[in-house]
Amino acid sequence: MKGARPNLKAVDGGLLKAPPMPSHLPADMKDVWRTTAADLVGRGLLTTSSLPLLETYVGALWMAKECREAIAEHGVLVRGEKLQLKPNPAGAMLKASQDTVARLAADMGISAASRNSNAIRAATEGQKNAESGFENFDL
């Protein structure tokens, strides 16, 4: 992950409740959607405009799962048209999905490591201070 990550902070207009998972996402990802959306709502980070990012994150997790299953079934190497061994195309798809998941998890503060970054910790503390009414007192 190159470059500085944005400072995540609770936003005005953030959703107060996790919306239902869109019907175009696989049904077996419903628990992932609920858990992730609830986490983001709880930290005041989920907005209507960030829902497509959450959809992409959940879709990429599903794709990674499917790729792992294809690799488990067919192996890391598969036979090509002339019976030569070649890398399973699911490997490249898995890498792309994992890259997407890692990037979005870091950008949205979903991963534990990204939550421990200074920017996200400051945003969380700012939200706690705002809730307590002492945000102007540096406490």
Rank of each mutant, 00 (worst) to 15 (best):
E131A: 13
G80Q: 09
A96Q: 13
T100R: 09
Q98A: 06
G126T: 09
E55L: 04
A60P: 03
R68K: 14
M108V: 02
P89Q: 08
M1L: 14
A90H: 01
P89E: 00
R121C: 10
T124E: 10
N7H: 12
N7F: 10
K2I: 09
S23N: 14
K30N: 09
L45Q: 01
L46G: 01
E125Y: 12
R103P: 02
K30W: 00
E69T: 10
A96F: 03
K2N: 14
L45F: 02
L53G: 00
E135A: 15
A38K: 12
R103Q: 11
V32A: 03
A37Q: 04
G13E: 00
L51I: 13
F134E: 13
K82L: 14
Q98P: 06
M63F: 12
A72I: 01
I110G: 06
L139I: 14
G133A: 06
W33M: 02
L51P: 08
L45M: 03
M108S: 05
E73M: 08
S23G: 09
A18W: 05
R115Q: 15
T35E: 11
S132Y: 05
L54M: 04
W62T: 04
L51H: 07
D12R: 08
L25N: 00
I71Y: 01
N129G: 10
C67I: 03
L15H: 06
L8P: 04
P26C: 03
R115I: 08
P89C: 04
P52R: 06
R68Y: 07
Q98C: 10
A18T: 03
K65E: 13
R43G: 01
Q98I: 09
D31L: 05
A105L: 08
K82E: 13
K30E: 11
A106C: 11
S111E: 02
A60N: 04
G133W: 10
